[in-house]
Design a protein around this nucleic acid. Structure first.
Lengths: 223, 223
DNA sequence: TACTTTTTTGAATCTATTATGAAGATTTGA
DNA sequence: TCAAATCTTCATAATAGATTCAAAAAAGTA
């Protein structure tokens, strides 16, 4: 299992990252400030570091610099919009990638997967996920029913992905919003209905997605 | 046993929550205002906090803020409909989830289970409950007799669930109404009869549910 | 047995939730 | 910057499920 060090002082975001990435199958360690980060870092080898820039004690730049002296572990920086982004570009970019807040989990997961793939020079075999005659290419964001390529929008793809990773479990609209949308999204939860409708239409007759009235949606367990 | 702190000034709702969640197997502590809440909170570690927004002395927002400074324990907010809901959305959501009053216990229990699952990172295994050849999948809201999937409506499922968690005990119609319906329901208690009828029909010949004339219904203890 | 009370039942009605199409807003990519 | 794609909201229609009702059946009682 690949090991990720999350360095983030906002406990809410820290928890979000922790939960979601653990779900995604990574081994997670967290730190809330620069000093703690370096301490944790020296304790074991990580495959990737997620590093907030604004940190107590030692900021992200500092942490990154120290880490870089010892190793070339991939680093992804988390930046607020205002200016930090351009600073990163201005610096001689010791980080491998960066992502601006607020971000959504799927976007982050994609970046992580991309960076890890690059660094570990794994072959380009795409990760896939299947259900009945449905196949998702998780890296290419493509879906197939049988051999036929179904053209899904990113959002549709992510909803389908999430339902499939939790086969048999009912996901409420809130569940989906919390994991797939940026954590600052304050819109209507009815938006899920519309995406589900569009998904169903594109996926055709075999209606994989069940409605549980008053609760949410589910893709059944295969059996 | 997981520990929940309930902070709610309406004593009726407080009692409801206390009883139902205790039944559901949680270790419950209650507080009726913000100050008491923080006092109780500092006394022991909780796995989850249920927090009403409108509270005497210090309101829910304040309590949440203080708690957040010390820990990232999951918090679920209880809100009245009028405006509070949108306030929550407007705040930078330090809570993990919220539920609007009036709510029903099953809805709340579902949220609690979801939040705890996320935070404690239990695996994705479904919680199930069995009785003779009957099995309930509590996360998927599905029922099975043997291997056969029985298609129950949410209400039917919840009634069956409640009867099974109290195997051997007679539940009156009032009992069921109080725990499964929103606490503002003022309809006929005869509605239970109809749901029981439909349940029996769907569950088939083996009649799991006994009628205790003049009292209520029961599912017998296994032996 | 006759009478009362309670439960069961099927059908009718009502309601809340979901599905849907279309319009408007936003984002993305050229 | 503009155009196309996608996301989001909204109003309306469709419908599953919840609830009520009234009559029949069953259980208890004298």
């Amino acid at each position: 299992m690949q090991k990720i060090l999350i360095v983030e002082d906002d406990l809410y975001i820290q928890a979000l990252l922790h939960d979601f990435l653990k779900d995604a199958g990574y081994d997670i360690t967290v730190a809330a400030d620069g000093v703690e980060a370096l301490a944790k870092y020296s304790e074991k080898d990580f495959d990737l570091v997620l590093l907030d820039i604004m940190l107590p004690k030692i900021d992200g730049y500092g942490v990154c610099e120290v880490i870089r002296k010892k190793s070339d572990v991939p680093v992804i920086m988390l930046t607020a919009l205002d200016g930090e982004e351009s600073q990163i570009k201005g610096l001689d970019l010791q980080a491998d990638d960066y992502i601006t807040k607020p971000f959504s989990m799927p976007v982050l997961v994609r970046k992580i997967a991309a960076v890890l793939r690059r660094s570990s020079k794994q072959n380009d075999a795409h990760r896939t996920m299947s259900y009945k005659d449905l196949t998702l290419d998780l890296d290419g964001y493509k879906a197939f029913v049988g051999d036929e390529n179904i053209d899904l929008t990113p959002r549709e793809f992510e909803i389908l992905w999430e339902l499939l990773t939790h086969k048999g479990r009912i996901l409420t609209r809130q569940n989906l919003l919390q994991t797939l949308w940026k954590y600052e999204f304050f819109g209507e939860e009815r938006i899920i209905d519309t995406h589900i409708k569009n998904l169903r239409k594109k996926l055709g007759d075999a209606d994989y997605i069940e409605t549980i009235r008053g609760v949410g949606y589910r893709i059944d367990k295969e059996n």
